[in-house]
Each structure stands twice: as structure tokens, then as C-alpha cells.
Simulated scan of single mutants.
Amino acid sequence: MTSSQPIDLQNSTIASASQQPLWKQEGAEPFLRIENVTKKFDDFTAVDNISLDIYKNELFCLLGGSGSGKSTLLRMLAGFESPTSGRILIDGIDMAGIQPWNRPVNMMFQSYALFPHLSVADNVAFGLKREGVSRSEVKQRVAQMLDMVQLGHLGKRKPHQLSGGQRQRVALARALIKRPKLLLLDEPLGALDKKLREETQFELINIQEELGVTFVVVTHDQEEAMTLATRIGVMNHGVIVQTDEPHDVYEYPNSRFVAEFIGSVNLFEGKVIEDEPDRVRIESPEAGATLYVNHGISCAPEQIVHVAVRPEKIKISHNRPQQQDNCIQGEIEDIAYMGSLSVFRVRLPNGKEVRVTQPNFTRSMGDRFTWNDKVFLCWDEESSVVLTA
């Protein structure tokens, strides 16, 4: 892959928190445009008529389970696969027929694919040397890039002498040193342990912001996507089913699939018995209560819907609260102490299980809940989402 125009680290145009992001600005031109892209392998459709706009300086995550089509879409962006139909445009240029090495793109693989016989510095310099960049410029750019990923003191080491997180940063430096306009990352943190993965996520964000390169990250890890992304595209069976900022994907899922795939959720089936512009009331035998939501929805009279409630939105108590709606009773069946929070599995009289999480604000056990306690579960009228799909 060839290098594009040098990145000016001093003048990278990163939007501040006070500026409206490009995807919300009317008339903003996308940096990466995917138009009606389909990819078929014989009779199997891996990517099904996807259209998506990604903007300059975004850190966009494609999130989905195995077989959802996310890696196939990433490979088409890199040029390793060709669309069966549709177009991919990068910076306004149609990528049809353009080979991977001629695209303003680089890709970082999950395995990192470092050369074991080369030093850290030589691994990072490899692409520049292949392009015939002068020795003095190679040395300067390698030093700059290694300093950026905090590995300047390890340039002479071999990959086997590094930790997993350090090898990940070497691979990132090698991918970025050729100054691509677009960096593709396929499960970049999948080989790291949980603690190191969490630390590296913030390093990745800082590097992306400093360079101003557009990142597209493929991951199956919901927490990773929520931490990294400016926006998330949730994929299922070759289709992007929702594209939104992390907060909106979590708090306002557009379907049962998204609600269940992102984090943990309780779903209650019921029938709409009142539908007004500012409220919805749902009769739910599954919950054993009437559920009330303070917003309207678009549905048919008496339509069967699902009400989604996140576990942390539910309040648990020994005594019955005064509220009538959104209040159910059950018995604690299981408790998991997770340190910062406790997880309760509460069994309703009809056998349905409800998951509740509660932060552990104090070290004292105090008036805690225990197994087989009879408890009441309640939540606010704005804490649930009505799903019609």
C-alpha cells in the first residue's frame, strides 16, 4: 500500500467536544462512502447491500458476532476482496480495480504479523524501505513513530522480547508510519488480556486523535466498541442493523437483536393498551404488571411489543414502593459479587428471570440482600424502551 500526503501532526483538524461531529452536519462530505455493497461467495451472501458513510477523523467500529460479515467488509475496504456489486469510495475516489498496495489504506491484523528476525525499529521501517525512502528520513520517521507509541527505548529488541501490548503497538506503528488516510484494524486487541486490553484502548484513542487518521475497527467485543468508537455499526447476517453513537446504541436500541447484543437487558413482552404522543402503557402478563413509558411509538392498536430495561436501571427493595406501574415482585435466586457492583437474578412468580445490577457504594454489608429474599423491582418511566422489531 502506498503512502499518501504526509500528516501534519501540528495541524491535524480534530473536532473538539464543543463542535458538532461531521455526521451531524448537513451537507458534510463523507471520507469513506460504501454504496449498496454486496459480497457473495457462491450461494452465500456475506455482505448484503450495505450503504454507510464514515467521516474524516472518525474512529468507527464495526461490531458483530462471528459470521456477521464485518471482516469481509473490512477486507473489501482494503482491496483484498472485490464487491460482487456496489461501490467503495475513499476520499471521493472509486476504489474499483485499485489494488491494495495502491490504496491510501493500511491494515493492522489481529495476529500483528511481525517479522520475528527483525528488530522493532526494522519492523516499523519495513514498508518505508520497500518504497525506497531515504535512510535519513526512515530513521527520523521511525524514531517519531516509536516515541508516539511509547516504544522509543525498545527499538533494538526483537518481537519475542516484548509483551503482548508492546507487540500490538509495534504493529500499530508499522501500519501508521506510511501515513495512510484510512487505517483498518481487525480485532486489534483480541490477543491481549482484559486489563491490558482496557489500558491499550485509551492509548489507541489518543494516537488516533493525535494523528487525525480515520480508523475503522472490526471487533466482536461490545465493551471495546463502546470505549473506542465515535460511532458503532452493529452487523448481523451481512447487514448493518443500527448505526449510532455508543450512548444511543446502548440506550436507544432499534430492535430486540441490538438490545440483547449490546450489554445485558431484560425484555418483557406485552400488548399496547394505551398509545398517546407522550406516553405508552403496555399490559404485560410476562412481567405480571402494567408497564408505562413516557414517550409515544408508532404501532398498530393492541400490537404485541417488547419493553427493554437495562439491569442497572432497576431499583431493588425489600418494601413495596408507592408507584403502581413498572413495579414487579420476585425472589432472589442468585447473587454475584463483582467488586464494584453486585448482580442479582430474581425469579418472578411465573418463572421469568430478571437481571438486576446494583453498585456497591460502601464497603459495609449493611442491609444487603441475600438468597431467597422476597423483593420488589421498580424502574422509572423513562428507563425503558419499547421495541416493535
Rank of each mutant, 00 (worst) to 15 (best):
E131F: 08
E131Y: 09
E131V: 01
G132N: 09
V133C: 03
V133Y: 05
V133G: 03
V133Q: 04
S134L: 10
S134I: 00
R135H: 14
R135C: 04
R135E: 15
R135S: 15
R135L: 12
S136N: 11
S136P: 01
S136Q: 15
E137R: 10
V138P: 00
K139T: 13
K139C: 09
Q140G: 05
R141M: 14
R141S: 12
R141L: 11
R141W: 12
V142F: 10
V142M: 13
V142N: 11
V142I: 13
V142A: 12
A143D: 15
Q144D: 15
M145L: 14
M145C: 13
M145G: 11
L146K: 08
D147E: 15
D147F: 02
V149L: 13
V149K: 03
V149C: 13
Q150P: 02
Q150N: 14
Q150S: 13
Q150R: 11
L151K: 07
L151F: 06
G152L: 09
G152P: 04
G152W: 02
H153Q: 15
H153C: 05
L154Y: 12
G155E: 08
G155P: 09
G155Y: 05
K156R: 09
K156V: 00
R157I: 05
K158W: 00
K158G: 02
H160K: 06
Q161H: 10
Q161C: 06
Q161T: 04
Q161W: 06
Q161I: 02
L162W: 07
S163T: 10
S163W: 07
S163C: 08
G164Q: 06
G164A: 09
G164S: 11
G165T: 01
G165M: 02
G165L: 00
G165C: 06
Q166H: 08
Q166V: 04
R167E: 01
Q168E: 06
R169W: 02
R169F: 06
R169M: 05
V170W: 03
V170E: 03
V170F: 04
A171K: 00
A171I: 03
A171L: 01
A171S: 13
L172N: 01
L172C: 06
L172Y: 00
A173C: 08
A173V: 01
A173M: 12
R174D: 08
A175N: 08
A175Q: 05
